[in-house]
Design a binder for these strands. Structure first.
Lengths: 157, 157
DNA sequence: GGCGGATGGTTCGCATACGAAACATCTCTG
DNA sequence: CAGAGATGTTTCGTATGCGAACCATCCGCC
């Protein structure tokens, strides 16, 4: 018989709900804020994310982009379509691997990116930076632990 | 000259990024899991959320629903349209306020809901419940603090 | 060299998701 | 009680976001 999970006092349901609430709130609010910021430049949230992601490195393959913004290729194809339509990015087939498409900023895209000072998750990060180092470390430790545990459960299933 | 913000030791950027990473990961993963569970019953994530939200209370106005699932009325209208098409819910004008639409479960919807044992955020909650009470309390305290701070910043702007 | 499977992108159909505008109804104020 | 503004819902247009199917290309292996 497999050993049972160690028995310990479970935290109260109220605490758990508060945590779920807070994560949901932080996530949706940060998305809302990013969207608002992007809107001032005629962009959407994901488009701003792509722009700022390309700015330092010049170009990325579509797959690299979708991995970084946590979306599927089929989603990113559409986002790039619209940004290309606006003349912000351009597509170029890779020479070494003809399947790969490199996405790069146009001059217009580079200019626009340079004019926007804030990163997409900036407000989120700003608030986090106001925590004491001890709290930040605690938060990091506990959340990372949670993430690992979720991964375990997912992979088992 | 306005007073400067109080100086304190900022947590390292690496910690912050890890926290942002973890929150994003937890959120997207919990959504993915919910979606998978819902799919086994021919539902989508939000539809399962609505079903389970209506189950204990019987009926809610469309606005109450959209507040609880953190979406706009125009979004929820569509979700309810599709659930109504499937015969899971029904609309009824309120007698006391003719503007209000009450959304209630049909027999079919109630049966389906009863057959699904897990709440939408259940996996999330399950992993949280494995934390020590101390860690859970810490997490709750820090995240709640973050949420309040975000609210402050948002309301000022 | 060639074939079978893996990988990178696109297309398609559908379900969110949002804001703006339209519409009905309610409520407050005078 | 009439008009003005607020509130609840829907409609519309557009942008994600996903999985499945598809095509082109690459890679491993015989």
């Amino acid at each position: 018989m497999p050993p049972r999970a160690p028995e310990h006092h479970h935290p109260r349901k109220r605490d758990l709900d508060a945590v779920v609430e807070a994560v949901l709130y932080l996530y949706t609010e940060s998305r809302r804020i990013t969207k608002g910021l992007a809107g001032r430049y005629g962009l959407t949230g994901p488009q701003l994310a792509v722009l700022k992601m390309l700015e330092p490195v010049g170009k990325l393959s579509l797959s690299e982009l979708s991995e970084r913004i946590r979306a599927r290729n089929s989603t990113v194809t559409g986002i790039i379509d619209r940004m290309q339509r606006e003349g912000l990015v351009e597509r170029a087939r890779s020479e070494s691997d003809r399947r790969v498409v490199h996405i790069g900023l146009t001059d217009k895209g580079r200019e626009l990116a340079a004019g926007i000072s804030v990163e997409p998750v900036d407000i989120f990060r700003r608030v986090l930076s106001e925590l004491t180092p001890r709290d930040a470390a605690e938060l990091e430790r506990i959340l990372t632990q949670l993430a690992h545990r979720v991964t375990e459960l997912v992979e088992r299933a």
